[in-house]
Amino acid sequence: TETYKYDDKREAEKAAEEFRRRGITVTVEERNGTWVLESK
């Protein structure tokens, strides 16, 4: 599991889209005002 942090929800979702395009499952969730993207 890799974790990436973003200040902006849009950025996180854009990154998530890129991962999914490569066939990687990711989750995006907000933690304490930071958007956390996790690849499984």
Rank of each mutant, 00 (worst) to 15 (best):
T1V: 13
T1A: 11
T1F: 14
T1R: 09
T1S: 12
T1H: 12
T1P: 11
E2T: 14
E2H: 15
E2M: 14
T3E: 09
T3P: 08
Y4T: 08
Y4V: 09
Y4G: 06
Y4D: 04
Y4R: 09
Y4H: 10
K5M: 13
K5P: 04
K5F: 15
K5H: 14
K5I: 15
Y6Q: 01
Y6V: 01
Y6C: 02
Y6H: 02
D7C: 09
D7R: 13
D7A: 14
D7M: 13
D8P: 01
D8W: 03
D8L: 06
D8Q: 06
D8Y: 05
K9L: 11
K9H: 08
K9V: 09
K9W: 10
K9T: 02
K9N: 03
R10F: 12
R10H: 12
R10T: 11
R10A: 14
E11N: 06
E11G: 05
E11D: 11
A12F: 01
A12G: 01
A12V: 03
A12N: 00
A12P: 00
A12M: 04
E13D: 10
E13A: 05
E13G: 02
E13H: 07
K14S: 09
K14I: 11
K14A: 13
K14N: 08
K14L: 11
A15L: 03
A15S: 04
A15K: 09
A15R: 05
A15G: 02
A15I: 05
A15E: 03
A15D: 03
A16D: 00
A16Q: 06
A16K: 04
A16F: 03
A16G: 03
A16V: 05
A16C: 04
A16M: 07
E17L: 08
E18A: 09
E18I: 07
E18Y: 09
E18V: 06
E18F: 07
F19H: 04
F19I: 05
F19S: 02
F19Y: 08
F19A: 04
F19E: 03
R20F: 09
R20L: 10
R20P: 01
R20H: 07
R21T: 05
R21F: 06
R21I: 09
R21G: 06
R21L: 10
R21P: 00
R22P: 03
R22T: 05
R22M: 10
G23R: 01
G23A: 02
G23I: 00
I24R: 06
I24W: 14
I24E: 06
I24Q: 09
I24F: 15
I24Y: 15
I24G: 05
I24S: 04
T25C: 10
T25E: 14
T25Y: 15
T25G: 06
T25R: 10
V26K: 02
V26C: 05
V26A: 04
V26M: 09
V26N: 00
V26Q: 00
T27N: 08
T27H: 09
T27M: 09
T27S: 09
T27L: 08
T27Q: 08
T27G: 03
V28L: 13
V28D: 00
V28E: 01
V28C: 06
V28S: 01
E29S: 12
E29V: 15
E29D: 05
E30F: 15
E30Y: 15
E30D: 07
E30I: 08
E30K: 08
E30W: 15
R31W: 07
R31D: 07
R31K: 10
R31Y: 10
R31M: 08
N32I: 02
N32T: 03
N32P: 01
G33I: 00
G33C: 03
G33A: 03
G33Q: 03
G33K: 03
G33E: 03
T34M: 15
T34Q: 15
T34G: 12
V36L: 06
V36F: 12
V36W: 12
L37T: 03
L37I: 13
L37Q: 00
L37D: 00
E38H: 12
E38M: 14
E38P: 01
E38A: 11
E38V: 15
S39C: 14
S39N: 10
S39W: 15
S39H: 14
S39I: 15
S39Y: 15
S39K: 14
K40G: 11
K40W: 14
